[in-house]
Measured scan of single mutants.
Amino acid sequence: MGFKLLSKLLVYLTASIMAIASPLAFSVDSSGEYPTVSEIPVGEVRLYQIADGVWSHIATQSFDGAVYPSNGLIVRDGDELLLIDTAWGAKNTAALLAEIEKQIGLPVTRAVSTHFHDDRVGGVDVLRAAGVATYASPSTRRLAEVEGNEIPTHSLEGLSSSGDAVRFGPVELFYPGAAHSTDNLIVYVPSASVLYGGCAIYELSRTSAGNVADADLAEWPTSIERIQQHYPEAQFVIPGHGLPGGLDLLKHTTNVVKAHTNRSVVE
């Protein structure tokens, strides 16, 4: 069995187990497998329904001669939608809004960016022009300005110390501490036991640490421990890039980060 097929099978099995364990909360999309990078042309966006009122959005972007996937989250909030992270750029984010209108038909009224990198804030200006209120932590807003990236308009308070959590509509926002970046936030959907790890969490097929220019490698494993301790009931975990899975993604990420750190020390 090929690795790609095995990865998709694991996603399907995880979703099936969740649907059985929580039949009222989960209505997993039966329309197909989780979209992969090879299936999404740059400039297009796919939506994948995880649970009743919960979707991931998947886009792709060219970077350094390669094409990478990027995940975000959409959560229903009454007759409105909360968006977590842009679709990595203005063109993708405009396509995301169009796809949401086509498939869901509810307005996106608020959006949260989970850290300051372009795959999370690139497209904020498109959201703002569409009347979406954009939010991020003060740290993310400051770092985005320093980096020359787009800056969300509103500040999220109460997320300055490791372990801080605040309720934001249908989700809980959690600051686990520094990891992929010093400002990275985690998003949890309690009604569906869905954990969105953003770039602080890796997919299972990833074996290298990737972009760690703004990471705190020493603190990252401790931050992941905080996530595990705060959300032990999480059933569906979405990484910032690639295929979702279960809580095993947290341990896998820790292993990859520690291996990278150990290699760096040896070198």
Rank of each mutant, 00 (worst) to 15 (best):
R226D: 15
A215Q: 11
E147H: 08
G245W: 08
S264Y: 02
I50L: 05
K258F: 09
S193R: 12
P190R: 06
D77I: 08
G32H: 04
L47A: 11
S7I: 15
A192P: 14
V126Y: 15
E225Y: 02
V124R: 03
H115G: 03
S205L: 11
W55N: 02
D29V: 08
T207G: 08
H154K: 14
R142Q: 12
I50Q: 10
L185A: 07
A129V: 05
A21T: 08
A259L: 07
A209W: 10
L24A: 11
H230T: 06
P221N: 05
F63S: 05
P239F: 01
A192Q: 03
R226C: 11
G210N: 15
G210L: 13
T207C: 05
A215M: 05
L173T: 12
S191R: 07
A178C: 08
M1C: 07
L143K: 15
D118N: 02
L243A: 06
P190Q: 14
P23G: 11
I50Y: 03
A136Y: 01
G123R: 01
S264N: 10
A59Y: 14
Y68R: 10
S208Y: 09
V256T: 10
T253R: 01
S22C: 11
V194T: 10
E147A: 13
A178D: 04
S193P: 10
E147M: 13
A95W: 03
V45F: 06
A215V: 10
G198H: 00
V11K: 13
V187P: 01
D85S: 02
I227K: 00
R120V: 06
L9V: 11
P232M: 10
G53D: 14
Y196V: 04
L81N: 13
E219T: 06
P41W: 08
S155W: 06
L127K: 01
F26C: 11
L106E: 13
Y188V: 07
L204R: 06
W55C: 02
V265Q: 12
I17S: 03
L185M: 11
K102M: 15
G158Y: 08
D85C: 00
S139G: 07
Y12D: 14
T207L: 09
L6Y: 13
A218K: 15
K251V: 06
N149E: 07
E203T: 15
V256Q: 14
R263G: 09
P35L: 06
I151R: 07
T86Y: 02
Y135P: 00
N211D: 07
G245I: 01
A144M: 15
A179E: 01
A179S: 03
H260D: 05
E101C: 08
A130K: 15
Q61R: 07
M1H: 12
G246T: 07
G2N: 10
I227A: 07
P176Y: 00
R206F: 13
G242Q: 02
V212L: 11
V45R: 13
S161A: 09
D79L: 15
S137L: 10
E101S: 14
N92F: 13
L13P: 05
D52V: 06
H180N: 00
R142I: 15
N184L: 00
R206L: 10
L73W: 00
G246R: 04
T182I: 10
W220F: 15
A15C: 06
E233Q: 12
T109A: 11
N92I: 08
P35Q: 14
Q235E: 05
A218G: 08
G210R: 09
I58P: 01
V166F: 09
H154R: 04
